[in-house]
């Protein structure tokens, strides 16, 4: 299973990962032009601060709470790749925000903020999809400090007590 790993100590807070994420998830393929799109793409990786900058990323959890919370059934963990996402399934995201409420890391966002104009269709939840169409996720490729990396980790199996060993 692919996962993003973060070495937060080396992060300088340059936010190139955020820009690359926006570009990769825009129609224009460009972070500046993306600002003209409606709804405007948002970064799915977030630079937050503790003592220094810390990139917050989706863990593509073993038992994702966002999946359990989803009332539409569209948030799913792919059994093959381990990627957790709410697009590309039979069920569609309707913007109920249960996943946003459930994610302990706070890395899922609504597709537009309160006050958005589009009332006819559904706003949707936006989250990291590990860039399935790219060899390397855009944020990883853009990071000049090698803070972000993709690694292949074996999916943990629950033991008899139900805990991850």
């Amino acid at each position: 299973m692919k996962k993003l790993t973060v070495t937060a100590e080396d992060c300088t807070g340059c936010r190139r990962c955020e820009q690359a994420c926006i570009a990769a998830h825009s129609r224009a393929g460009n972070a500046a032009l993306a600002t003209l799109e409606k709804p405007e793409p948002k970064s799915r990786i977030l630079i937050e601060y503790d003592r220094g900058p810390v990139p917050l990323v989706c863990r593509h959890c073993v038992e994702p709470l966002c999946v359990s919370a989803c009332m539409a059934g569209c948030m799913q963990k792919d059994p093959e790749t381990g990627i957790v996402n709410n697009v590309g399934h039979e069920q569609q995201c309707v913007g109920c925000w249960m996943c946003i409420m459930a994610c302990p890391y706070g890395v899922i966002s609504p597709s537009y903020d309160a006050g958005g104009e589009d009332q006819s269709s559904f706003a949707v939840a936006l989250k990291c999809d590990l860039c399935p169409n790219l060899d390397t996720p855009a944020c990883v490729a853009a990071c000049p400090m090698n803070v972000l990396a993709v690694s292949d980790v074996p999916e943990p199996v629950f033991n008899a007590k139900g805990n991850v060993p």
């Binding site: 937050e48 503790d50 810390v54 302990p104 629950f158 139900g162 805990n163």
Partner: peptide, 17 residues
Amino acid sequence: SYAAVHRGPQFGQRSPY
């Protein structure tokens, strides 16, 4: 944000998610 507690051992450990 979660960044403020990401070093701490006390958080996110209780549940195996």
